[in-house]
Amino acid sequence: MAIELHPLEQFTIEPLIPIHFGNVDASFTNSALFMVAAVVVASALMVLGSRRASLVPGRWQSLTEIAYEFIAGMIDENVGHEGQEYFPFIFTLFLFILLGNLLGMIPYGFTFTSHIIVTFAMAGVVFLGVTVIGIARHGFHFLSFFVPHGVPPVLLLLLVPIEVLSYFIRPFTLSIRLFANMMAGHTMLAIFAGFVTAMGIFGFVPLGVDVLLIFLEILVAVLQAYVFTILTCLYLRDAIHLH
């Protein structure tokens, strides 16, 4: 009995509307479709949810307010009051990743956060932005971030390169964490789904596993959006307060 599994096929980028600017391929793909869907759902949540502006919120308005206060609280706790300046960006980042992850859980859907280029682009923007903010606020003094306090000068020879390395590795760990989590989860779901038909009458076993995995993946989807956002907050705190 040959089992044919193509668990990575689901990550294929398929152009839906081919668009080309000279040599540049700007086609509207399945990935782009879900990005647009994420924007539409997120906008609907925040714009329609706040439409009535009731003193006593209804269900949708409560959800809108909870999302707002969740991120506002996260920034206040992890960055401090100065962080509220960057609130719209961090809020957008959180909703965009959260909805990318969750919309990817829809069967036959596409998870754009399962592509390293997407997560790396976001992590790269966060890294560059945070570095620029740090330099703009502290100027040359920003370099003191790489020098730990209260350490013998000899050890600094060892510690400063480590600090520098751990700083520049941030965009990679940030992007790979999200991408790998999304890809691994969806691959696993596809593998078990492939077993369902292959195992014939015992197919209910991998089906049951998939049902449980779906719940786990929904949890991971929310958790990874949270992790990406809170790490962004922590990097921002480093840039603003230097330790």
Binding site: V24, D25, A26, T29, A32
Partner: peptide, 12 residues
């Protein structure tokens, strides 16, 4: 697939 993804990521 990188250019279309990046372009649409930027836009959205």
């Amino acid at each position: 697939t990188f250019p279309p993804q990046l372009i649409w990521l930027l836009i959205t």
